[in-house]
Amino acid sequence: MYKVIVKNLIPILLCIIAFIQIHKVYTKDLTPWKGGGFGMFAMIDRMENRPVHINLWSSGEEYFVNPRDILSNEDYYRIKSLPDNDALDRLASDILGKKWIQKEKADKSEVYSYLKLYNNSEYGSLQKTIPADSVTIEVFRLKMNIQNNEISLNSIIHLKKANSLSTYR
């Protein structure tokens, strides 16, 4: 009996991890492509098709932060794959605690105001930074309407956090 159990240890491990993955897909919005449940090539909702939007508010103005500018590859893909509230909350605190300056627009047609991280050695101490009053982070999944092949975004998780030090509400 003991030998039978030991011989089957690895298949048992595979099943445990696959069942955890199934549970997380249905309860925690884990993408079915990841987590060891072998759900690849079954759904459109893959990690790469999940955009992360970070909007920063300062004195009533809305700015955008590119998540790739502040997250390591590992953390960026982790948030897309399993966008849980704790990870988003930590990221929001991190964003609110950093200094930001406005990124030059690449061309005049660009309508979005992107921010980049303030770096004292690069921009000098006289560069005006933008105080972060609040930040919203939202992760989306892609969906397709088969009737007309329309693709659009569907929100998975949305988090808003205000800066406790800020005077603006």
Binding site: P11, F38, G39, F41, A42, M43, I44, M144, I146
Partner: peptide
């Protein structure tokens, strides 16, 4: 087991069975 779970996910996905995923 790998193919069992792979088949499970495809059967659980209406968009896969309707052909939407491959489209």
């Amino acid at each position: 087991l790998c193919f069992l779970f792979a088949t499970f996910w495809k059967l659980m996905s209406p968009e896969f069975l309707a052909g939407d995923f491959f489209l």
